[in-house]
């Protein structure tokens, strides 16, 4: 039981450890919220990948393509609805954001479905081929993005009501980051409910542990896997468009860039564990923001160090899934 909450303590522990390193309390609050927001977006992008790996032992580097393609699809809608995005009205903004997000998730899901059928299915059980083929798929998708949307960086302004900051005391908290935290919590809550309160979720968790047994109980794991793959791709698309708005720009290579962090997160969390992915993403997000402020040169190294330390403590990640 205590094994369950122990990794959770790491989150406040890292936050508190950073407190004396940062010059002022308001800065610390700003960095902490920024770290949590970043972590939530990484979680949204990574959660599907960890389940895909846990269920079918598939190394899918093309996940990065779902992120990029989702971002471009969403951005196309958002940019087309510029007046609604620029209006100082939440409902006007939402009238652009909702279709944008739907477009991002739908296109990423469709691409995921296609990849599962055409690219991933022929290479089950062979990690080397999976890495080669899915990396190839990722590169092809990036080139296709160049063809469709052009090779240049595309600026993507945030919606008007989520621009700027709230002031809490002396601490400035970007509105957009608060939105990211809220969306991240909603996605995590929804996934938790599905995984723990529905039969489909139980089957997914059971399948992550032992596929043969799930099949022996009479369920076709393939269908389950396709469903998870497509849902995970849709979430990658959602995370992609959120990430693009966070960066206020998008490039075809953005998916590939975040994949490094995503792999660190799902390894830290324990492959196949959604809860672990959540905790891992928050840790990585916080770490990146504190270190990025205190010692910017160490930012990427700090995440790798975090991974090494956690694996020394728990070699199979924070929440190892029983195989």
């Amino acid at each position: 039981m205590n094994r369950k909450w122990l990794p959770l303590v790491l989150i406040p522990a890292i936050a508190l450890a950073a407190l004396p390193l940062v010059p002022s309390l308001p800065t610390w609050v700003t960095l902490t919220v920024a770290g949590l927001a970043m972590g939530m977006m990484i979680f949204i992008m990574a959660s599907g990948l960890t389940l895909v790996f846990g269920l079918m032992d598939v190394m899918n580097f093309a996940h990065g393509a779902f992120i990029s393609v989702g971002a471009y699809a969403g951005a196309s809608v958002l940019l087309a609805m510029k007046p609604a995005m620029q209006a100082q009205s939440l409902s006007a903004n939402l009238s652009a954001i909702v279709p944008g997000v739907i477009a991002a998730m739908a296109l990423a899901a469709a691409l995921g479905w296609f990849f599962e059928r055409v690219v991933v299915r022929p290479v089950y059980g062979d990690h080397l081929k999976q890495i080669l083929v899915t990396t190839g798929g990722l590169i092809v998708c990036e080139q296709l993005i160049h063809v469709v949307w052009g090779p240049d960086l595309i600026p993507l302004p945030r919606p008007a009501t989520f621009t700027g900051s709230y002031l809490i005391g002396d601490a400035a908290i970007e509105r957009y980051r608060m939105l990211a935290v809220v969306v991240g919590l909603v996605v995590f809550g929804a996934m938790w409910l599905v995984l723990n309160r529905t039969k489909l979720g139980l089957l997914i968790r059971a399948g992550v542990e032992n596929i043969e047994m799930v099949e022996s109980l009479g369920y076709r794991i393939r269908r389950l896997f396709v469903a998870v793959f497509v849902a995970g791709s849709a979430l990658a698309g959602l995370g992609g468009v959120m990430w693009a708005m966070y960066q206020e720009s998008l490039t075809a290579g953005m998916g590939m860039q975040v994949m490094v962090v995503i792999f660190i997160v799902i390894i830290i969390g324990g492959l196949g564990s959604v809860g672990g992915c959540f905790v891992g993403a928050l840790l990585v997000g916080l770490m990146a923001n504190y270190i990025g402020y205190v010692a910017p040169k160490l930012a990427l190294g700090s995440n790798i160090l975090l991974m090494v330390l956690i694996l020394l403590w728990r070699p199979r990640g924070l929440y190892p899934v029983g195989k």
Binding site: L202, R205, A206, E209, L217
Partner: peptide, 15 residues
């Protein structure tokens, strides 16, 4: 082949 991360009840629901 029990599902270790599921409760006894959840194991039976899956079955």
């Amino acid at each position: 082949g029990i599902f270790a991360g599921l409760t006894v009840r959840e194991n039976l629901i899956v079955a």
